[in-house]
Amino acid sequence: MRKYLMRLTLRQLQVFRAVCETRSYSRAAEEMALTQPAVSQQIRQLEELVGQPLFEYVGKRLYLTDAAEALQRAGADIFARLESLDMQLSDLRGSLQGQLSLTVESSAEYVVPHLFAAFRQQHPEVGLQLTVASHAQALRRLGVSRDELMILSQVPTGMNLEFMPFLTNQIVAVAPAGHPLCQRERLSLQELTDQPLLVREPGSGTRQACETFCHDKRAHFAHTLQLGSQEAQRAGVLAGLGLALLPRHAVSLELASGRLCELPVAELPLQHSWCVVHPRDRRLSPVASAFLAYIRGNRAAINALNLSL
């Protein structure tokens, strides 16, 4: 290893990480409780050490250079190793401590708090850093190894990933209470296509799955309204804007209270599984390993938990 790299400091890497995440020197300064000149100085020192520029402006937007992307990946590995060391030392003291870094696809955001709460009953000193992202955003995070574990509904190929299906995700058609279709005993998917359909934004895993399913069934909805989240879809259905295809767990309370009804569509529910995912070549921290082991050993109980939400 070249000796100049030994002069890198953790503080410099922390400042650099903040600039990468915020794409702004001023916002990074606020986050780090520093002045903007102090942030600029730390970045200049890093650039002198690596011998290459780390950031460049195109218009008013800050972009990472190739050198910055390489340093970002190395920094993520370093901080992950330090977090893992902290957890291992805690483990040696007889208790599992540390923070689980977990990104979940937005369709799973209602289930994960219940899942983590059950895990935390066994390990009460473990914290959680939870990021909710669209499917497309989650894939971008995978590309830079931002998280130890992810929960995805569709696992990409060609990315050297380990994955384990652990929870059934049933997508159903829902309508507002009192909708004429709620009185039917049986429907086909084709019979819904003259109704407005509320859909997620492009890049949503649920939207991709539903579009593929409808295409395969030759069910083409003439009128769609694009909403930016499951919450907006659910609120839109309640407001009478149209129908939606949603994970059953995401509308379980509304179905139980009668505010929404699940339409008896013969082709539904659409069955998928959520998977816990991690890069195959990344060494997991004790907390991440314990969470993975908990899921592996409790899949039946986790599915029962999902049904009771």
Rank of each mutant, 00 (worst) to 15 (best):
V144C: 11
G94Q: 00
A133T: 02
G205M: 03
G178V: 09
Y110A: 13
L100N: 09
Q122H: 05
N169M: 14
M150A: 06
S107P: 01
D147F: 13
H123D: 05
Q99L: 05
E125S: 13
S188K: 05
G143H: 12
S95Q: 06
L130Q: 08
F163C: 02
V155H: 01
R186Y: 00
D194W: 09
R186L: 08
L130P: 02
V111I: 11
G143P: 09
V126K: 07
R186Q: 09
Q170K: 14
G203C: 10
R141E: 04
Q121C: 02
T206L: 08
N169G: 08
N169I: 10
R200Y: 11
Q195Y: 07
L149N: 14
V174P: 13
F163S: 08
Q170G: 06
T206Q: 12
Q122N: 08
G98A: 08
P156L: 01
R141H: 11
S188M: 03
L115R: 00
L149Y: 08
Q97T: 11
T157S: 12
Q129R: 15
V111W: 09
Q122G: 03
A118C: 02
Q195F: 07
R146P: 07
L197W: 11
T157P: 04
V126T: 06
Q121A: 00
R140Y: 12
P176R: 15
E185K: 11
S204E: 07
S204P: 11
L192M: 11
C182L: 11
F166K: 01
L130S: 06
A177G: 05
V144M: 13
L139S: 04
S145E: 15
E105L: 00
I151Y: 03
L161T: 00
S188T: 14
F116C: 04
P124G: 05
D194K: 12
R141P: 02
L128P: 08
N169E: 14
G205H: 01
F119V: 01
Q121M: 00
L96T: 05
A108Q: 10
Q154D: 05
F116G: 10
D147Y: 11
V111L: 15
L96R: 13
S204G: 13
T157I: 07
A133V: 12
R120K: 14
Q154Y: 03
S204D: 13
L192R: 13
G203I: 14
T131C: 05
S134I: 02
C182E: 14
Q121T: 00
